[in-house]
Amino acid sequence: MKSALKSLPSKWLAVYAVAYMVFLYAPVILLPMFAFNDATVISFPLTGFTAKWFGVLWQTEALHGAVRNSLVVGLSSAVLSTVLGACAARAAARYRFPLKRGIMSFILLPLVLPEIIVAVALLVLLMQLGMPLSLVTVVLGHVLICTPFAIAILSSAFQGLDQSLEEASFDLGETRWGTFRRVILPLVMPGVVSSLLITFTISLDEFIIAFFLTGTEVTLPVYIWSQLRFPGKLPSVMALGTILLVLSVLLLILAEWFRRRSARKQGIEASATGGFA
């Protein structure tokens, strides 16, 4: 009797969970559907299978420029934010210093700040400094919002690092640099790779800051935004979105794999939530 009572909410929760997943995936499922649909209008019913919209992408010169720009911005943002994130995560995990909480909250502030505020604030500063808008300014903004994510990911890597490992290395005659190279770096490397992948993915998808700070050269999301106004371009935009989705998911899987490997190397159970815990 009691177990029947217990399993009742469990069953309804499972049904709810499935319904929720349908809600989550509803728009995502449509993306490949329309990308392969043989019609210029984005609506049902589907008319037939085609891969021609992918071909259209291949021939769109402006798109190639946007892809190149996004790759440059994404790579630069990923490297810079991971380096800055590593400094902060290491400092937070290893040292006590004055105003630590305040400094960390301030650095993590972009996580809860509406992106439009970040974008507008940077825009105002750049205007006052007379700095022309370009891909560089987009990178400046992206590094700012990517760094907190890098810190979240790298924190778990650095916190899992038992301080006595460093002391042991030092005790065995190794120098500070040697300890970094032989002990710390190998242990946090998977976390670093994971951070690079995640921050790259965030930068690749980011629109609002790029929209405000981009100059004549646009990034991919800004390009997509400009294409949304032209109904004729929509099917190829769907194709582009499909490619981006697949790419993002692959990068994510890779990042997760590296994060788990990092945890396993340190002999700790990888928490399911990663750096967000």
Binding site: V83, L84, G85, C87, A88, R90, A91, A92, R94, Y95, R96, F97, P98, K100, I103, F106, I107, L109, P110, I117, V118, A121, L122, V124, L125, Q128, L140, G141, V143, L144, T147
Partner: peptide, 25 residues
């Protein structure tokens, strides 16, 4: 304390320049 502050200073400096300064602006 010194080492901790030194290590976090690049990140802090970046946030000051790219977040605090713009917000004040």
């Amino acid at each position: 304390r010194r080492q901790g502050l030194a290590l976090i200073s690049p990140t802090l400096l970046y946030s000051l320049l790219m977040l605090a300064a713009p917000l004040i602006m």
